[in-house]
Simulated assay, not measured.
Amino acid sequence: MPITTIDKDLESLTMTIVADFPVPLARLWDAYADPRQLERFWGPPEWPATFTRHDMVAGGRSNYYMTGPDGSRAGGFWEFTAVDAPHSFEVLDGFAHEDGTPNTDMPTMRMRYAFEETPSGSRSTMTTSFNTLEQLEQLLEMGMEEGTVSAMGQLDAVLADLASFAAGRATEAQILSDTQVRVSRVIRGTVRQVWDAHQDAELVKRWLLGPDGWTMPVCNLADAVGDTYRYEWENAESGERFGFTGELVESEAPYRSVTTENMIGMEGPGTLNEMTLTPVEGGTLLAIVVTYPDAATRDMVLATGMTDGMETSYARLESEVLASA
């Protein structure tokens, strides 16, 4: 059990939990920065968490839900008010309805995590500040302390799982729900380098090609929110051609962009693609949450080998673009 002290201060309306870990500071920080790792310990074992958004930057937001043994869900959100990697982050921590909107009937707390090196590894200090004594007592009665202790009891195993952590470079797709898939890949390069590689049409034409044998004759980027984009690919041997078009609906350089996507020539609803770039040890974690219109469309796209094609493109991004930057 990593927790060393728990202190409830009824005068200052805070609860502080200190935990020590036999791992480097960067490793501990990445467990919170990478949603794939965070959701392995944020919820208690019987209520595992799924993060559908995780923008670990000041002004960013995280959305998550925990699934109970009977399939019921309890939602939550974080609004990041400060981030100082790898030393601290602060959030407004609240409850959410099933659709992700804040539940204003429940209290919102301020939570600060501080991380520091120790002679034996690293330490986290989580301080939760409540607005009133009644709020603190309400949440303690709901089992907040026990739930937090139970959740953090899983963090030791996550931090010790160095094999999967090190193998996390390859592109992987994780099904989050009937309509959502998260595609993740650690890319060797800074956040700015990876972001810029998505904003320069000539660079995009060099790496966003999928399997060998394809070219990208059309690459019209969306420069500002509200602009449309158009990508077209052509097989050099057969002349086969396909493409996508869509609109840039959100952009927070260099950390987050959100686009719609429709296949050219195909009718019906398209997808919503939310890309987030997060600095982690060894490079930048690129995560794209894709929202499909339904589970059938999700499964059809995954069956096309989408993940393998994206891995080929991201490997090319590293070797051909970032290596020469």
Rank of each mutant, 00 (worst) to 15 (best):
A173Y: 06
A173M: 07
A173E: 08
I175K: 09
L176S: 02
L176R: 03
L176H: 08
D178K: 11
D178P: 04
T179N: 00
T179D: 00
Q180Y: 07
Q180A: 03
R182T: 07
V183L: 07
S184D: 10
S184C: 11
S184M: 00
R185G: 05
V186C: 04
I187V: 11
T190E: 07
V191K: 01
V191H: 05
Q193C: 08
Q193G: 08
Q193N: 09
Q193A: 12
Q193K: 04
V194N: 01
W195F: 14
W195N: 05
D196T: 08
Q199P: 03
Q199S: 12
A201P: 09
L203K: 10
L203Q: 09
V204S: 05
R206A: 14
R206P: 02
W207D: 02
W207S: 05
L208T: 01
L209G: 04
P211A: 11
D212Q: 12
D212G: 09
W214H: 09
T215Y: 00
M216L: 14
M216F: 08
P217M: 11
C219M: 15
N220P: 07
N220E: 15
L221N: 03
L221M: 03
A222D: 07
A224N: 14
G226R: 02
D227I: 09
D227G: 10
D227Q: 08
D227Y: 07
T228V: 10
T228F: 11
R230Y: 05
Y231F: 15
Y231P: 07
E232T: 13
W233E: 04
N235V: 11
N235H: 15
A236E: 14
A236Q: 11
E237F: 12
E237L: 09
S238M: 06
E240K: 07
R241K: 11
G243W: 00
G243F: 02
G246N: 05
G246F: 01
E247W: 08
E247T: 14
E247I: 10
E247Q: 15
L248M: 08
V249D: 00
E250C: 00
S251N: 06
S251I: 04
E252N: 13
A253W: 13
P254T: 05
Y255C: 11
R256L: 12
R256P: 02
S257T: 08
S257R: 13
S257A: 12
E261Y: 11
I264Q: 03
G265E: 02
G265N: 04
M266C: 00
E267W: 10
E267T: 15
P269G: 12
T271R: 04
T271P: 03
L272E: 06
L272F: 08
L272W: 00
N273I: 09
E274G: 04
E274L: 06
M275F: 15
T276D: 01
L277I: 08
T278F: 06
T278N: 04
P279C: 09
V280G: 02
E281Y: 11
G282R: 00
G282H: 05
G283F: 03
T284R: 02
L285T: 05
L285V: 10
V289Y: 02
V290G: 01
V290A: 12
T291L: 06
T291E: 12
Y292D: 03
D294Y: 04
D294R: 06
D294T: 06
D294G: 10
D294M: 10
T297H: 12
T297Q: 09
D299Y: 13
D299S: 14
M300E: 12
M300H: 11
L302R: 08
L302F: 09
L302W: 05
L302H: 07
T304E: 07
G305V: 03
